[in-house]
């Protein structure tokens, strides 16, 4: 088994109003050194290992998990718990 960790973030060109609101709040708390906040999603999959594992992950990201019009994704594959 593999554990797949997928990180989805808004593209650089897309405004992140949620991140902006959080940054304003951090500034109000006097964390003035924060220069940007981007909020994204983190998804964990447990998958059977296969030769085309990366292809399958990318396919799932492109089709459903991320909307590539506004989002970027990256992923890491780790050894999962042996069942």
């Amino acid at each position: 088994m593999k554990k797949v960790k997928i990180y989805i973030t808004l593209r650089e060109s897309v405004l992140d109003p949620q991140g902006q609101a959080v940054m304003d709040s951090l500034h109000n708390m006097s964390y003035e050194d924060v220069k940007d906040v981007r909020i994204g999603k983190y998804i964990e999959l447990e998958m059977e290992d296969s030769k085309n594992l990366t292809n399958r992950i990318e396919e799932m990201c492109e089709k459903l998990l991320a909307n590539t019009v506004i989002e970027n994704y990256r992923y890491e594959i780790e050894e999962g718990v042996t069942q």
């Binding site: 109003p17 949620q18 909307n67 019009v69």
Partner: peptide, 17 residues
């Protein structure tokens, strides 16, 4: 319709949330 690709583009959260 946007997610299905029948129309182009995507929706973001309202600017003022």
């Amino acid at each position: 319709l946007l997610e299905a690709g029948l129309l182009p583009g995507a929706m973001l959260r309202n600017k003022k949330l």
